[in-house]
């Protein structure tokens, strides 16, 4: 194993453990960890099994195999960012509904105490 491969194995292992720990402590919801876990597992496997990395790189026409790892990393980062955009859009839609419902609810409540009452206290 060359130095680059060792670095790659160590970082992706630490990353994987970090994500798992965040999920275990409930700091990260499972649904948001899936893409992170998948990405780091694939990078880890390809770093350990260099023959697989070489084979797949030749297959897609990449002459320098480790750059395929970057490709995998980029792909998952894009997927995760798109996922976030979808989640933010959904949150905005839900947030809008909540703001509207609050305004409608407030209007159906009796008016607040008139300010004169405060002077009497």
């Amino acid at each position: 194993m060359n130095r680059l491969a060792i670095l790659s194995v160590v970082t992706s292992t630490l990353f994987l453990l970090g994500i798992l720990e965040l999920v275990r402590r409930r700091r990260l919801r499972e649904e948001y960890s899936i893409l992170w876990l998948f990405g780091s597992v694939i990078i880890l496997v390809l770093s350990v099994k260099q023959s697989w990395l070489n084979w797949i790189s030749t297959l897609v026409g990449i002459s320098y195999p480790p750059s395929f790892l970057f490709l995998v990393g980029m792909f998952f980062i894009f997927m995760i960012l798109i996922h976030f955009s979808i989640v933010i859009s959904k949150l905005m839609r839900m947030n809008k509904r909540l703001i509207q419902e609050i305004a409608l609810l407030k209007s159906s409540l009796p008016p607040e105490e008139p300010p004169q009452n405060r002077k009497e206290q």
Partner: peptide, 22 residues
């Protein structure tokens, strides 16, 4: 006027939509 107070700024479309709901 009857007044609906939105707790945050929604933009014109969100505000008018609240009026449709009302």
């Amino acid at each position: 006027a009857i007044t609906l107070d939105l707790p945050c700024n929604l933009g014109i479309g969100g505000a008018v939509q609240t009026a449709y709901m009302y």
